[in-house]
Each structure stands twice: as structure tokens, then as C-alpha cells.
């Protein structure tokens, strides 16, 4: 599914190297987690994969089902099946949530040569999916993320994921700013989307999200590299001992 080989990248304006050779291979249907201390490059990795401006890839590759991601515009990557759930979902005053969702769904369908959804069909689908995420009609009507609470914003991200049905989902610290109940709700939304053909990369600081979204593989990232890979027990080890031991092991 997602194959990253020796990915290196700089922050454009500051001439600073953030990724120093990331290797990652996520198979179809797998859930991988990346943990790591602040500043290790986790979020940067998610931005570079989804095509945010401001970074320069200096080496390596990233492919989704064999297709070069790095060569595409962000919207083309989305149409190819990549989805990033933002750590800080952006507020867009003046654009209704519903308009936004329909524009996105239909833009992707169009890009893939599929027929656009009619307003009626779209409405039916979005209402059903919103209901399971406890998103009410008012949230759908309001401008995108404007005035949403932290929990509402994250649920809105998962609703977008549910509507767009991507192959490869990256969750960038989706648990940040959520209380326990909100986190459970979001995790349930994610788990409902797990399937054989859909893979997840969960970026998080804390083990507790991984209690709810159970990973197959856990990676530890530090200083722009994956320094250790293991099973779910690796996340528990971090939770109990912090990163210090792991970092000194490598050094």
C-alpha cells in the first residue's frame, strides 16, 4: 500500500533538515502507529506525504500502490486515495460544511472518472454517516470547523474520512485536545472504517489512543528517522519508560 524509502526532506525557509531517511512499509489493511518525542518529524512526515508547501524533498521516495505520491498535487494525492486527518483542522469561514463535503466528494469522483453524486444521494449518505459520529444537522450547516469545539473538529475529520473512503488514512495526533469520551467516539469512527483494503498510519504521543485503535505495528521516530519497530508492546514500553531508554539504545 504505502511504501516510503529513504525519505529525506528540508524545511524550505530555514534550510533545516527534518527527515533524514525514513523507511516505512504499510501493507493493505494494516494499522501502523508512529510515536516519538516532540520535534522528531512525525507531523512533517504527514505533511510531506499529503503535499503541503514549505518542504523540499531531497531524497528517497513515497509511493501509494506503486504510484509516486511526491510528484502529485495535494488534490491528486487525495483522489489517489490518501487522506490526512489534521492535528489542527482549519476553520473556513463562509464555506458551509455540507458544500465543502460535497465539493470534495464530487471532485474526487470526477478525478477518478466516476459519476458525481446527486444532491439527494449525497444528503442521504452524509446524514447516515454523520449520525454514527454524533454530528447533528447544525454542524453540517455551519461553516467548516468555525466555532467547533476540539472534539467536534476531530469528529468532522472522521466524517470527511468516512465520506471520501480513502485507501490510506494518516491520523496526525487525532487524540490531541480530546477528553476520554471524545477520543472513544473518534476511535469508534476510525475502527468502523477498518477494512482489508484500507490502511492507517496513526501518529500519536500517547499509548491511550492505541488502546482504542489497536495497531499491528508500532514505530518509534526520533530525529527524522524510524529508530525502532515492533508490536503493540513497544507503545506500552514508551508509556512506562518514556523515550530516554530507546534513544540511548540507538545512540
Amino acid at each position: 500500500m504505502l511504501e516510503i524509502i529513504g525519505l529525506m526532506a528540508d524545511l524550505q525557509d530555514e534550510d533545516k533538515t527534518i527527515l533524514k531517511g525514513v523507511n516505512l512499509n504499510i501493507g493493505a489493511g494494516e494499522v501502523h502507529a508512529i510515536m516519538g518525542p516532540n520535534g522528531s518529524g512525525k507531523s512533517t512526515l504527514s505533511y510531506i506525504l499529503s503535499g503541503k508547501d514549505g518542504y523540499e524533498v531531497t531524497g528517497g521516495s513515497a509511493t501509494l500502490d506503486g504510484v509516486d505520491l511526491l510528484d502529485m498535487e495535494p488534490d491528486e494525492r487525495a483522489a489517489a486515495g490518501l487522506f490526512l486527518a489534521f492535528q489542527y483542522p482549519v476553520e473556513i469561514p463562509g464555506v458551509g460544511n455540507m458544500t465543502f463535503l460535497r465539493t470534495a466528494v464530487n471532485a474526487q469522483r470526477k478525478a477518478r472518472g466516476e459519476e458525481e453524486l446527486s444532491a439527494g444521494d449525497f444528503l442521504k449518505i452524509v446524514r447516515a454517516k454523520a449520525k454514527t459520529l454524533h454530528i447533528d444537522a447544525d454542524m453540517l450547516k455551519r461553516p467548516v470547523n468555525v466555532g467547533f469545539s476540539g472534539g467536534e473538529k476531530k469528529r468532522n475529520e472522521i466524517l470527511q474520512m468516512a465520506m471520501l473512503e480513502p485507501k490510506m488514512c494518516i491520523l496526525d495526533e487525532t487524540d490531541s485536545g480530546l477528553d476520554v469520551d471524545a477520543m472513544k467516539l473518534v476511535a469508534e469512527g476510525v475502527n468502523a472504517l477498518r477494512s482489508e483494503g484500507r490502511s492507517f498510519l496513526v501518529i500519536t504521543h500517547y499509548q491511550r489512543l492505541l488502546d482504542h485503535i489497536k495497531p499491528d505495528v508500532v514505530h518509534i521516530m526520533a530525529d527524522g528517522r524510524i529508530i525502532k519497530t515492533g508490536g503493540p508492546e513497544l507503545a506500552l514500553e514508551v508509556e512506562n519508560n518514556g523515550y530516554a531508554d530507546l534513544l540511548s539504545e540507538v545512540a
Binding site: S50, K52, A78, V90, G94, T103, A104
Partner: peptide, 29 residues
């Protein structure tokens, strides 16, 4: 707003469509 533009693009909306959507949103008030 570049952040809003990237957000829309990351959901599959082409850059020009996203720009137009944000421009209309700007005029909305």
C-alpha cells in the same frame, strides 16, 4: 489563506476550485 487552500486540496478539491470557493466565501458577508 494558504492553510485553508491546503486543507481543501488535501480533500481532493483542485487548487483553482478551492481558490474560487474561498474567494466566494470572502465575498459572502
Amino acid at each position: 489563506d494558504e492553510d485553508a487552500l491546503f486543507y481543501l486540496q488535501s480533500r481532493g478539491v483542485p487548487r483553482q476550485t478551492a481558490t474560487n470557493l474561498l474567494t466566494l466565501a470572502f465575498l459572502a458577508e
